[in-house]
Amino acid sequence: MSLIETKDLVYLYGARTPFEVKALDHIDLRLEEGGIKAVIGHTGSGKSTLIQHFNALLKPAQGSVLFHGENINANKQTAYRTRFRIGLCFQYPEYQLFEDTVFADIAFGPKNMGMSEQEIDSAVRTAASYVGVGEELFDRSPFDLSGGQKRRIAIAGVMAMNPEVLILDEPTAGLDPQGRETILKMILNYRGVTGKTVILVSHSMDDVARIADEVIVVNQGKIALQGTVHEVFSHSAELTQMGLSVPEVTGITDRLRDMGCELPVGIFTVGQAADALADYLAGRIRK
């Protein structure tokens, strides 16, 4: 049984108006448990709409979403409970902070779940440790902190619900290289410590190349590709066509290959590219 499965999932924007758009077009998708999965696609491809179906924030116009084989929209209760089991952290989450203190903001989700005072306390502390927020910040107002800190606190707010699956929508958007690095390391750490499934929505192919195990490419409301990072990046020409930018080194090796150099496909890191190019040059000399 898959962890999350969508069956013939259809979602319409502006349903029953002349401007009706099929945001999701008959999607059949299976996601197995474990690992970091990246959902990629350009703005408007339907990737954000898709993940909002995973935790029942959006209801499908047609088809169903199964979690552990159970329909999450079977009734209101199941749908509501699914939000805690599949934690979704939206884009620019720092703009959704609202409590007086960092602690209270992280505790919002656990409180809504009906945890006891003690459970909340431990959930908040654990989540804060995942994102590297020290206890000395707990009594501070989240609005006084730096942008990067705010974002990590907002992410902790979702982690504190102790979800089985953590979905992060563009967690590195708008951050500088240091900030991006911190978030990526934090995700890897969370994954390592908890062993839970993480779904990462991104249009940064460099981030995806760095940390993802599996990649799902969404284009025009359909699943265009699904596979390991290596498999997906082997289709770099198609990715470019879908408006996704492949890592710089992938672009370079692709162009050299088009010019007649015999290089393998599916190169997406600097190390791989350097190895392939060095091998190619060595091979030429041998010939």
């Binding site: 080194v249 370079i252 600097v270 590219a273 350097a274």
Partner: peptide
């Protein structure tokens, strides 16, 4: 990244 690639090469 290109700069890094040169460095690696």
């Amino acid at each position: 990244q290109t700069g890094m690639l040169c460095e690696e090469l």
